[in-house]
Simulated scan of single mutants.
Amino acid sequence: MSDFLRHATIANLLRERPFISVNELKSKVGVSAATVRRDIDKLVEAGLGQKVYGGIAAMDGLPARRSVALPFIERRDIAVDAKRAIARVAACLVRDGSSVIVHGGSTCFHFGCEIAQRNLRVFTNSMPVAAYLSEFGTCQLTVGGGDLHREPGIIYDAAQSGHTFYAAQFFVGSLGVSAEGLLESHPLLVRFINDMCNRANEIIVLVDSRKFRERPPTVALPLTRIHRLITDDGLTNADAKMLEDHGVQFTVAALNKGVPA
């Protein structure tokens, strides 16, 4: 495939999706990772995309689009600095000795890493979070029961009822955020989020600023249920106003410092 055809192929993919990883592009266009990275540099120079960790993203300012849920292993390596900054700010909200619920997803995974050594009781259905905490953490860990759903990477039994655990805080991520609320594409996650929300006193949303441009099809939780949202300093003025108009308290994590901006 010629350089021109590869660049056109990547540009067309970006019209449909907000992000494409280097690994996926290798498969799509049939070249090495080094060649893909050079292609990305050319597209960025031409103003057709923006370079992000692990791949290329659509330009800011484009209309929100329907989202494709990437595998966790790819999502974990996207916008890492932003997710770690959000995780550090979120960890400051947790009181030692308390109980928290940690949702699945890549931002919540980084949050789990931040609190691994804390004096806490952590409940999670996330396989990646549970695996990290079991190997590197000292906190008390409780893992939810049920079937393993490899994507989205959670252990959950939708038919289960009568949970006896409750927590001070539920830290939850989302595939997208709009004026309607938290948006998801997987029906199991919608069910899980609503279940966990009924078992915590405070619901804290952890999302990087890219999520405000994405539009999965299903509202998992309305904004009125959210107590606080933490994002990075890529949050636009329009999205900040949207949160304010809906009465959502939010904190912006500065990427370099990991403290509220």
Rank of each mutant, 00 (worst) to 15 (best):
S106W: 02
T124Q: 02
L62N: 10
F4L: 12
V31S: 07
T164H: 06
G146L: 02
D41Q: 13
R38E: 12
G112F: 01
G162Y: 04
A46F: 05
L70W: 02
V248S: 06
D195P: 08
A179D: 15
A34N: 10
L43T: 02
G137L: 05
L182A: 11
F170Y: 15
G61V: 12
L148D: 03
D81H: 07
R88G: 11
G176N: 05
P260R: 07
I155F: 07
V252N: 00
F123C: 01
L189C: 10
G104T: 11
H246Y: 04
D232C: 13
E214N: 06
T164D: 11
L175Y: 01
R17T: 13
L175V: 03
I10K: 03
E74N: 03
L25F: 00
A69W: 00
N198L: 13
V22G: 01
G49F: 08
H103M: 10
C113T: 11
A87T: 02
G181L: 01
S174D: 01
V207Q: 10
L62S: 10
I230D: 07
A116K: 08
Q140A: 15
S161P: 07
E16V: 09
V259S: 13
F123W: 07
D81G: 09
T138M: 00
H227P: 13
A34Y: 07
L13T: 04
D39A: 02
A34E: 09
I226E: 04
E202G: 03
A116Y: 01
E24G: 11
G137Y: 01
A179Y: 14
Y53T: 08
N125P: 03
G105Y: 06
I226N: 06
V52N: 00
G146M: 03
R150T: 13
L189R: 02
K257Y: 12
N256Y: 14
D232K: 08
D81N: 12
R84T: 07
P217Y: 03
S161K: 15
F192N: 10
T231D: 14
E184S: 01
S209P: 02
H246W: 04
E214T: 01
Y166V: 13
A240E: 12
I155M: 03
S161M: 15
S21C: 09
K28S: 07
I78W: 12
M1C: 13
G247M: 04
A116S: 07
L70G: 08
E151C: 01
A261E: 14
K257L: 10
I78R: 15
F192H: 14
Q50I: 15
A91H: 08
A69H: 07
